[in-house]
Design a protein around this nucleic acid. Structure first.
Length: 357
DNA sequence: ACATGCGGGGCTA
DNA sequence: TAGCCCCGCATGT
């Protein structure tokens, strides 16, 4: 007897909740329960203060996976692995496609890759990208804890994500793969070449997450605080592109093959790290944390954005976009995109290559 | 190239 | 001292 997908999903939810909401253990307990009758199905989008117990044979649990972009955080405890959320990368122009979808890219986990990522362009409007850091845990990023005990893997999440869901890892990887394939496939088309030069690294359509708005939507309660995108960007728009002095001084300046996104450069006055590296204003997530620690003492820091929860989306190569600040530029780009005949990277092809959830 | 995990170290309460 | 985070390095894919 075959089970319907809905039945399976419901069973998973039931299973997931049994070890989570009713759990009496804490990840820091000296002794964790061993008489666990059944383990949970792996939860791709753990949110809020949940706990799960997975089987040690669960591959996803073994790898401490999450569809949130989580990076390792040292807690000086080799028994408990701690990871903190990096947030989500959005378009600094807050652009939307014609169907009203927003850009929610997955922040790169690697620090250097993330800095590079932020110098790239919005795949929809070629505007600047901005990383919205997670502050769902008392002003700090949501943290996930993993602990292996015998045949069980204990998982605990602290904090509720206050930002939209990014692409999943698979989606982000698929997008990169397609981009590579496309580069290799049609390197000679001059217009395509020009288009690619405009969007150096992440110009391809990214997949639409099949997981729709979820529990997380209820947590996007950051106050808008009337902060405009321009202000949130630290005044990065409308200034001629250049490599920031900090990046140069830090030896982490971009490679010649990585042109900056027009209008993207380290924010004016961006502080240098003690080691001379470029310390982005806020969104790199990392550099902003020290500042946030201070801000958090007097209440949660204001959010740079108020984002309505929407699904990550496929941005077709010729997708129209709504970016008032870049309207003229956008139109030119739109014309160019429409003339590109980018059948090779249609969303159909993309979806075929992308094993979505 | 990037994800992942480990461990040193700085900062604050 | 504990708990937070940043950062560099090593390793695996």
């Amino acid at each position: 007897m075959l089970k319907g997908a809905d039945d399976v999903a419901m069973e998973q939810e039931d299973s997931a909740s049994q070890n989570g909401e009713m759990a009496s253990w804490d990840i820091n307990d000296i002794k964790l329960p061993q008489d666990v009758k059944h383990t949970d199905w792996f939860q791709e989008w753990p949110d809020s203060y949940v706990k799960h117990i997975y089987s040690s044979e669960d591959k996803n649990a073994q790898r401490h996976h999450s569809s949130w972009a989580m990076r390792n955080t040292n807690n000086h405890n080799s028994r408990i692995l701690k990871k903190s959320c990096l947030g989500v990368v959005v378009c600094g122009n807050d652009c939307s496609t014609l169907d009203g979808r927003k850009i929610y890219l997955r922040p790169a986990i690697c620090d250097k890759a993330r800095q590079k990522q932020q110098r790239r362009c919005c795949p929809n409007c070629s505007g600047p990208l901005q990383l919205i850091s997670c502050r769902g845990h008392g002003g700090y990023p949501v943290t996930n804890f993993w602990r292996h005990e015998g045949q069980l893997i204990f998982f605990q999440s602290k904090g509720a994500h206050d930002h939209p869901r990014p692409e999943t890892k698979l989606e982000a990887e698929a997008r990169r793969s397609i981009q590579k394939a496309q580069t290799a496939f049609s390197p000679t088309c001059p217009r395509l070449k020009r288009f690619r030069e405009t969007e150096p690294r992440d110009p391809l359509p990214f997949p639409r997450a099949k997981t729709g708005p979820s529990v997380a939507a209820a947590h996007f309660g950051r106050p808008a605080s009337g902060i405009s995108p321009e202000r949130a960007l630290g005044g990065r728009l409308g200034i001629s592109p250049y490599v920031g002095a900090g990046a140069e001084a830090g030896g982490s300046a971009r490679l010649p093959s990585e042109p900056l996104c027009p209008g993207i450069h380290p924010a004016p006055g961006a502080p240098l790290t003690p080691k001379g590296g470029y310390e982005p204003l806020g969104p790199t997530g990392d550099a902003s944390h020290r500042e946030k620690r201070h801000a958090a003492s007097g209440g949660l820091p204001a959010s740079p954005y108020l984002l309505a929860q929407q699904e990550p989306l496929v941005v077709p190569p010729g997708a129209h976009h709504h970016c008032a600040p870049l309207k003229a530029q956008g139109r030119a780009l739109e014309d160019e995109q429409q003339g590109l005949n980018l059948d090779c990277c249609s969303s159909d092809m993309f979806l075929n290559l992308c094993p979505l959830r």
